[in-house]
């Protein structure tokens, strides 16, 4: 690895570490309360997860395949409703997607 690539990694890695740890260290978000910042932070989690789900799903939608994504998504919802387990729902969704992919292929 060249010195420039290593320097780039160190700069970006240091920024990532700061982004992830320093707001906690400085006590941002700690405690209760119902102010504007508290409500904003309470909504960040659901907003982030919804956004990341959409962002990670968009390539599948844009690819135009139907059977595998529908099978995978349906399996995640079904397994979640059945067992209330994130682990099982995730694995079930991936298995169903793979099965749908194989059948469609």
């Amino acid at each position: 690895m060249s010195g420039e690539v290593l320097l780039l990694a160190l700069v970006v890695g240091a920024a990532n570490w700061g982004f992830r740890t320093l707001p906690i260290r400085f006590g941002l978000g700690a405690g209760g309360g119902g102010g504007v910042l508290a409500r904003f932070l309470a909504a960040v989690g659901p907003a982030a997860i919804a956004t990341l789900f959409v962002a990670s799903s968009l390539p599948f939608v844009q690819a135009g395949a139907v059977l595998a994504p529908v099978a995978g998504t349906g399996a995640v919802v079904a397994v979640w409703l059945w067992r209330r387990s994130v682990v099982l729902a995730t694995l079930g969704g991936a298995l169903a997607y793979a099965a749908g992919f194989a059948l469609a292929g």
Binding site: S56, G72, V76, W80, R84, V86, A89, G93
Partner: peptide, 10 residues
């Protein structure tokens, strides 16, 4: 995507 959907449901 499956993980994010499961997390969203949770």
């Amino acid at each position: 995507p499956a993980l994010f959907l499961a997390l969203l449901l949770s």
